[in-house]
């Protein structure tokens, strides 16, 4: 063994050397580097998880948004339908009111025309009676007493009414 260089003190030196090297490398090398690798792995894992979470949230939000848009569209559609119905109703009401007013105006007009016509007829009748009396007085040259007078007028008017009717 001596020819091969076996030397106990050297062996002890190498054992001590290795122990020192192992301890120092552990402190200045393995520990910080493994910690850094763990930290990085953790950070990458967190990032990936966060990306997944954000992606899921975005997908959920998109679904929710689409749902809200659908709801909004349906609501808008319903409001539009309702507005159309209201507009239809208002138009119908306005039409019927206008028609009613028009009918009332026509009725009033008719009534007024009728009234004016009646008054005109009365006036005409009055004048006619007066003219008739006057004419009769001149024709018969006598004055008629009140009763006779009235009878004659009524008779004439009755005839003229018959004439009007015919």
């Amino acid at each position: 063994m001596e020819d091969l260089g076996f030397h106990v003190p050297s062996l002890v030196v190498y054992l001590i050397n290795f122990t020192i090297l192992l301890s120092l490398l552990y402190v200045v090398g393995y520990k910080p580097i493994l910690r850094m690798l763990d930290q990085r792995a953790e950070s990458i894992k967190d990032s990936v998880e966060m990306v997944d979470r954000v992606r899921e949230e975005a997908a959920a939000q998109q679904v929710e948004m689409q749902q809200q848009m659908e709801e909004g569209r349906q609501e808008g559609q319903a409001m539009l339908t309702q507005a159309r119905e209201i507009a239809e109703k208002i138009r119908d009401e306005a039409t019927s009111k206008a028609k009613q007013e028009a009918d009332e105006i026509v009725a009033k007009a008719r009534e007024s025309v009728q009234k004016e016509r009646d008054e005109a007829i009365d006036q005409v009748r009055q004048h006619f009676a007066e003219i008739a009396i006057l004419a009769a007085e001149r024709v018969i040259d006598r004055s008629l007493d009140g009763k006779t007078h009235k009878d004659i007028i009524e008779k004439v008017l009755g005839e003229s009414a018959d004439l009007n009717r015919s």
Binding site: S10, L11, Y14, L15
Partner: peptide, 14 residues
């Protein structure tokens, strides 16, 4: 150091 028998022997013992 690998050419010194004591170094491989020390590592083998460790």
């Amino acid at each position: 150091a690998g050419t010194d028998l004591n170094m491989p022997l020390a590592l083998a013992l460790i």
